[in-house]
Design a protein around this nucleic acid. Sequence first.
DNA 1: TTGACTCAACATCCTTTGCTACAA
DNA 2: TTGTAGGTTTCCATGTTGAGTCA
Length: 443
Amino acid sequence: MVTLRYFKGLIVCDAYAPNTKWSDELKAYISYAYKYTEIKKYFREEGIDVTDEVFNSAPPFPAITDEIKLRDYQFEALKAWISHGKRGIIVLPTGAGKTVVALKALASLRESTLIVVPTIDLMHQWANSIRELLKADVGEIGGGEDKVSGITVITYDSAYTRAEELGDKFFFIIFDEVHHLPSEGYSLMAKMYAAPHRLGLTATPEREDGKHVLYPDLVGPIVYRKGVEDFAGKYIASFDIKKIYVKMTEEEEIKYKQLRQKLRKYLEKKHITLRSLDDFNKLVRLASKDREAREALLAWHESLRIAVNSKAKVEKLRELLKEFKDDKVIIFTRDTQLAYELSKLFLIPVVTYKTSKDERKEILQKFRKGTYRVIVASTVFDEGVDVPDANVGIVLGGYGTKRQYLQRLGRLLRGKDKNALLIEIITKGSADYRLSKRRSFST
DNA sequence: TTGACTCAACATCCTTTGCTACAA
DNA sequence: TTGTAGGTTTCCATGTTGAGTCA
């Protein structure tokens, strides 16, 4: 006879099982809570009786009304997840209804559920969807709210700081925007919850740091995947992508070359070749001690800024704003400085992380109503913000990641009646061109 | 409750154009 | 002569968010 208990993010048992280790402090074998299912299965297979006290304090599942109708692909996704033992990740593009699939899973499981989301905005959005679609009572934790219920929505940060206390209260855990999960702190959090049933949702599972390989251990494998190209024109708007190339001014080009030269000289001197991210990090480490390295790195930053924010882009933008004078347009920049400059120059509202909550809300509302036709944003809208439909997006600058690119495109695809257009303005012969190539759609 | 602050965590950051020292 | 590793176990900048604190 073996007893399984939960203690502060750990499963505690009085006999050995694979994945456990002896704890002198607790005088028992322990493991991170997420190994709960495996441990229990092991004892069962060994013919050992198990007294399971792990979920003794789980809140009851509330009364719900389930009238959710799934589209074909949503049903397929759900089926795939169930057939993988109710563990795994569903990849669907923005606007294809990931939330609905998750709510259907929740409604069919009827187990106490925790939904983990990256922002407070998303927390409220999920809670509202649950109230509307399931007519259920819902708890919220984060952003000043603190109510645990049989269905609870929580921020990643709160899920992390309160993992010890909440890890034994939910059988089912949903990670929205699951690409956040593999980071150091959050992956530890995922291990401290005992929930045997796990569902991850994202449009963009791949991470720049390669840590997406951790998914199978933390959540389960990718069980269903569809991209934006599978749905364009059907469930989300059809779209076109247009690239416009511009050149730096003579002045910019001279400055750009000077800065690049500075970087190159330093790299040559130190026999460093920038071939991988590791090489780059080497330079960053050097810059913390070596003044010359720091200057070389600053030169790199500055050269990138010049290329990404070139004057020709602004002039091209002026033309485009005239051309699309009847459309709803979002302009995306890489840094806040350019966002504010464009706001001043074209007299359009701007949203960055410096914009107050109230002001942001007001701007988005007016954009939704049509009072504002054009808005400019830095990288704030890249994720988790419910941005009203626009049909034209103009990218002046961004990262070299597919994730950001897809997320920005996703901002335009919410409404399916209009054809969306994403225009990228790129500075030729510069680092900006390489960034654009890296994030480019056709891999 | 709010507002203004600070702090911590997370994400991005590369692709050019083969050196030097040391061990086997 | 040929092959291989080249730093320490953390972070040059900027952008973004959530949580916590204090008035």
